[in-house]
């Protein structure tokens, strides 16, 4: 048995090496890449929503820019707490190609409360209305706030669930998007 053990172990290691080469992914990256999914490493699912002003914004139309999508509602205290920092980031990084889209979960919010909220917080980035909750479902948003960081290539770099996000987290993720 003592003599057989090294032989068996050697065979195992040789088989292991063979398996590595046999199972190699020759077609290229096995990661998400061009596949659409609300998951880090995948292409951000496309959507079109209307803003509070009635303008239509399509996500794919913003390809080439760094995008932060923040799902929020007026009744959500952490959402409110992080809005000043988000506005600060918009002001600081707008010139570098940062776009912030605040998607309001209108299907579970009061429409009439949105405009006063925007005015109170002095928000200047687009407020998109997810009136029937479709985009929230598309991105599998299960809690508010949820923030999605999308690179210039359209790939989701980071999903942050919950809040309020520390300012340093927001800034560091945006810096990563703009690299």
């Amino acid at each position: 048995m003592q003599l057989k053990r090294p032989i068996i172990f050697t065979i195992i290691l040789i088989l292991g090496l063979l398996w590595i080469f046999l199972s190699a992914n020759r077609s290229g990256a096995s990661t998400g890449g061009p596949l659409l999914a609300p998951q880090e490493g995948f292409l951000a699912p496309d959507f079109t929503l209307q803003t509070l002003d009635g303008e239509s914004i399509t996500l794919s139309g913003l390809r080439g820019q760094a995008i932060v999508i923040n799902f929020w509602a007026t009744w959500c205290p952490p959402c409110k707490a992080e809005m000043p920092a988000i506005q600060e980031m918009q002001d600081a990084f707008r010139e570098q190609g940062l776009v912030i889209l605040a998607v309001n979960a209108t299907s579970q919010d009061t429409y009439t409360g949105i405009a006063p909220f925007i005015e109170d917080y002095g928000l200047t980035f687009p407020i998109l209305l997810d009136s029937n909750g479709e985009v929230g479902s598309l991105y599998q948003v299960r809690s508010l706030p949820t923030t999605i960081f999308i690179g210039r290539d359209g790939i989701i770099q980071k999903i942050v669930i919950g809040g309020p996000m520390p300012r340093a987290l927001l800034q560091s993720r945006i810096e990563e998007l703009l690299k």
Partner: peptide, 9 residues
Amino acid sequence: DYPQAFLAS
């Protein structure tokens, strides 16, 4: 990795 972000906050 992100010193500037923490210097600001």
